[in-house]
């Protein structure tokens, strides 16, 4: 089990796409490739942008298909962050 704390990486307003890309490439993808279930912990993250969440997870869905979502848990999301994640998850599956 790999747990990634988004607050530590991106701050309370998670908006920097370069950081999102770094998290995906350096932490998320290696964990998934190793077969480790993944927890993305958003504790302390007050808000995010759709762009940040898109860069964080869209390529995972595009590359691996929607079943990759079975390997990822989104933890401690407030309402705003949860809704943004749902939007990104939804439109990504619409376009693959």
């Amino acid at each position: 089990m790999t747990e990634i704390k988004i607050l530590k990486e991106a701050g309370s307003f998670a908006e920097n796409k370069d950081i999102a890309k770094r998290i995906r490439e350096k932490k998320i993808m290696p964990a998934l490739e190793a077969g480790n279930p993944l927890i993305l912990d958003f504790e302390g993250v007050d808000s995010s942008t759709q762009s940040f969440i898109h860069v964080l997870i869209s390529e995972l869905i595009r590359t691996n298909g929607p079943n990759v979502l079975d390997e990822i848990s989104f933890k401690n999301c407030n309402t705003t962050v949860e809704k943004i994640i749902k939007i990104v998850v939804y439109y990504m599956q619409d376009t693959i």
């Binding site: 929607p66 979502l69 990822i72 848990s73 989104f74 809704k83 939804y90 599956q93 619409d94």
Partner: peptide
């Protein structure tokens, strides 16, 4: 915004959609 995206998607596809897991 979510509703706007939903409107763009065919109902038949919805059934196959995966949902994000929140814990």
């Amino acid at each position: 915004i979510r509703d706007t995206y939903f409107d763009r998607i065919k109902i038949k596809k919805k059934e196959k959609f995966k949902r994000a897991k929140f814990t």
